[in-house]
Design a protein around this nucleic acid. Structure first.
Lengths: 243, 243
DNA sequence: ACCATGCCTTGATGTAGATCAACTAGATGA
DNA sequence: TCATCTAGTTGATCTACATCAAGGCATGGT
């Protein structure tokens, strides 16, 4: 269910104004972006972009969650990125991507024509700089995820994932005790963490039994003991994953 | 054994001239870089940069192999990057790095003062563009590695690693049948692949028994059947890892 | 009200790779 | 020449997680 809309939301009311590709832009640059942008929305489960397909547009995630997934020839899959609001999809000079992009939620994207956007970059150093920052942030996140995939136990993986959602959730809303949306099925989570869905389910149950989290329903949980959760991640006090 | 040398090699004779950070530069830009650069050399095993240490310089790998390694608080380690010749260490705007950089070989770096280099980037779009490309290449490599770490079997991991070395080796020298240098100990390889050193050893032995590779000594091997090797990687015919 | 259907949980069993341990082959050096 | 050390191999055993299998519980359509 892919819907394309001309821009309604004004940039200065945009929820990702200060974190997205446009965060460093001045008034003139914002006007330029505003005139170029359009919104697309996708329903949960829609494929936003197929691997290998030529890219028509690049986009920022405004709301919802999208995933980047790689598939091996025999069907094994591994998620290689989680695109939360303000993440940027598409890169200068890359006409195709090597993974599928899927909406796990209802997703709204702020889109720019790829070719026009690439021209814009050359004249807009603030955008080019921010694009570099976002790419480096993704590289950092990918490297932290390599540690998770290569060395962490199932319990540590789940704890890390929950902490990640918890941290991102409190970025928008300071209340740590509120219900957090999982956004994904057990199957999708297992793809992200390099596990099976059964193991994900068992580890959720275990963390609940240990009083670290609590589920209000299958898709929403509360962190009851943030410190204990962190102890289970295997990360040290300060460093570790920054998403 | 860290030695700093003023530049001897002329850029136009440099082995990584056409792949490194300078690959898009014109004559004037090259002259600028030439005047700024200096070489540093490290012996096998030396730590080039410690995690968290402020970066004095950024650098291209000219020869040898360096690794990026993350360590968990209880000592588990995971390699998150393999820096082959032409790879770039350090990023604009990042004063520290979150992993150790180690020489696995004797390594020569072409270094630039970090602060001066960051100023240079603003006036030298060819360098900024190339830096972006290299960062995106690393991101692609990191994502392929996530699939390897999360979903591949031990045999597939080893086959992928050997194919990676083989491909990189033939980039410089077309002869597929020549001896390829492993550059690393079994222990370091296990760190890269998310395995133990025993498993690495067993898989090497198994691939040798199956006639796919052959060892001339413990650190040098020949690929006897490139197609069979590829079949063992789990990657499809065209796509897969590009390093 | 009923039956699909999709998502999740829980249990029983299997296995790839980790762990523990012993041994071999070069390399270094007195 | 013999002792020591490091890197690698190989074997025996263990275990975390995968795999296989059986229900449970919502939601939606007819």
């Amino acid at each position: 269910m892919n819907v394309i809309l001309k821009s309604h939301i004004k940039c200065n009311q945009c929820p990702i104004r200060h974190r997205a590709i446009c965060s460093r832009c001045d008034e003139d640059e914002m006007a330029m972006l505003e005139s170029m942008k359009s919104y697309r929305t996708y329903a949960s489960g829609d494929v936003i972009l197929w691997r290998g397909e030529p890219l028509e547009f690049v986009a920022s995630v405004v709301s919802g969650v999208a995933t980047l997934t790689k598939t091996m020839e025999d069907g094994r899959t591994q998620m290689v990125g989680l695109m939360l609001p303000s993440a940027f999809i598409g890169r200068p000079g890359r006409k195709v991507i090597d993974f599928d992009v899927t909406a796990t939620d209802d997703v709204t994207l702020c889109c720019f024509d790829r070719v026009k956007f690439e021209k814009l970059i050359d004249d807009t150093p603030h955008v080019a700089q921010r694009l570099m920052e976002l790419a480096l942030d993704e590289l950092d996140a990918a490297r932290d995820w390599m540690v998770l995939l290569g060395r962490k136990t199932a319990r540590e993986k789940i704890a890390t994932f929950i902490e990640l959602l918890s941290r991102h959730s409190s970025m928008n809303n300071d209340d740590h005790t509120k219900n957090i949306d999982l956004h994904m099925t057990r199957d999708q989570i297992s793809d992200y963490l390099g596990l099976t869905l059964e193991t994900v389910s068992r580890q959720f149950t275990a963390l609940k039994k240990d009083g670290i989290i609590d589920f209000s329903d299958r898709r929403h949980f509360v962190v009851k003991d943030l410190a204990a959760l962190h102890d289970e991640t295997g990360d040290d006090a300060d460093g570790g994953i920054v998403a």
